[in-house]
Nucleic acid binder design. Sequence first.
DNA 1: GGTTTAATGCAACTAAGTTGCGAAAGTAGA
DNA 2: TCTACTTTCGCAACTTAGTTGCATTAAACC
Lengths: 126, 126
Amino acid sequence: MGIVRKTKAVNTVLNIFEHNNEAKSVVNLIELVKGEMNKTTVYRILDRLEQDGTIHCFNGKDGLKWYAKCNGCSENHHYDLHPHFQCTNCDKVECLSLEVKIPSLKNHKVDTTDILLMGQCSDCLT
Amino acid sequence: MGIVRKTKAVNTVLNIFEHNNEAKSVVNLIELVKGEMNKTTVYRILDRLEQDGTIHCFNGKDGLKWYAKCNGCSENHHYDLHPHFQCTNCDKVECLSLEVKIPSLKNHKVDTTDILLMGQCSDCLT
DNA sequence: GGTTTAATGCAACTAAGTTGCGAAAGTAGA
DNA sequence: TCTACTTTCGCAACTTAGTTGCATTAAACC
Ligand SMILES: [Mn+2]
Ligand SMILES: [Mn+2]
Ligand SMILES: [Zn+2]
Ligand SMILES: [Zn+2]
């Protein structure tokens, strides 16, 4: 069970994800809402939104937690196995709607993948 | 510049990687050599061995640092862009000699990838 | 409005990883 | 083998991400 009460803090976090489509690191989110809510609250809201299938979580290049909006996930069905791209210059992270084919592995059962591409984003290329 | 002096501590760490081919988390390595050397030393030796192209570093599923032996890398050439597999049951990590094709991204320059497959390893499947 | 209980704030904690500095130990050359 | 030079190490203190327990606050439902 994720979000059951639409608190002020929940709405603030939701607004951040609604307003632009970029992924956000937890560190950045905490910074963004500083003064408005406690960091513990941020972590707990993100947990609940993830359970609901509203956002999904993944690790950035430094092993930090990042979150981004889901697209058609629900509490029961999470299907955001898409890869992510992180710019080595500006650190920005994007969700990619690419399909990456994973060759099958004998004697292994692959349930999920975590694919991070790194390099220069379009802003930093010019 | 990586390793310049073959100290006792360096040999201990090297032996761990020589003796079996598995990837090791830094946390696990520190545990393994507890009593023999300080954790700061472990971090510093791993840094130097990585610079030399002796081992390579990547993030496990929890965002922790893992290291494994390189295969034919040198100080000047690092080419271990292979994917890794981590068992969700026993946490073991393996280097995979798979080639994963990444579709090209327009307006992006992809320099490197970090691909982690997760699921059940052969030991945990039976 | 009053009651219930989820959600929040706060402070204290855990754990990974880093830094600075004085002491110890490789290494090369005499 | 001894010395001198410089890398490496140990230690303690620090930084930062993330977690936990508990008392207080505020949604939601009547
Ligand atoms: Mn995504
Ligand atoms: Mn590897
Ligand atoms: Zn960029
Ligand atoms: Zn396993």
